[in-house]
């Protein structure tokens, strides 16, 4: 599971390393660290946001306990829902049929975000192929995104290649 941890460090050198050591030692895989030195808390501590992947609750509890023993305060712990990614390919006059509108129509659906796109255009007369990377907040949202894409594709004469499993 993926965990978000808000911790508060003393404002002295070497504190971040001291905080990360038990995390890795107890099997946590550190995904990201956001460390803002300029923004001290009211108590004069440095807030840090950690995202880690960890096998089970037991390991998480031991990490929190060890952090406490090292005078590292844990102010918030929570599971982070992983975003699902879904790839789709569109073939046709993807750009000429108002690509902006295609993306907007998808982004209007709550929980759906077109996160990335790669285009390949052999020449202006021929059809364009586009690989879309769509972020969905929950797996059920993938079906919503697909049915909207299929509606758009019908309107605009595009072919849709979905991922296996949606």
């Amino acid at each position: 599971m993926r965990i978000g941890l808000d911790i508060e460090l003393k404002d002295t050198p070497g504190q971040l390393v001291r905080a990360l050591e038990p995390v890795s030692r107890l099997g946590g895989n550190i995904i990201s660290i956001v460390h803002i030195r300029e923004e001290l808390t009211k108590k004069g501590r440095v807030p840090v946001h950690l995202t880690i992947d960890i096998e089970n609750d037991g390991a998480l509890e031991r990490i929190i306990k060890e952090l406490g023993e090292r005078d590292i305060w844990v102010s918030k712990v929570g599971e982070v829902k992983k975003k699902e990614r879904m790839k789709v390919i569109l073939i046709g006059h993807v750009v000429d049929t108002d690509l902006r509108d295609t993306i907007d129509r998808l982004n209007e659906i709550p929980g759906i975000l077109v996160a990335d796109m790669a285009l390949s255009m052999p020449n202006p007369q021929q059809e364009t192929s586009a690989l879309m990377d769509i972020e969905v907040s929950r797996p059920e949202k993938a079906k919503k995104a697909i049915s909207e894409l299929e509606r758009i594709a019908r309107d605009k004469g595009l072919a849709v290649i979905k991922s296996l499993g949606v």
Partner: peptide, 27 residues
């Protein structure tokens, strides 16, 4: 039913760069 006649080499190349192949699948 959707066939394979609109598949372009570019679509296949984009898929490949991302670790996918395009196959005609019945589900």
């Amino acid at each position: 039913i959707e066939g394979i006649n609109r598949i372009t080499p570019e679509a296949i190349a984009l898929a490949k760069e991302d670790g996918y192949v395009i196959k005609l699948v019945g589900t």
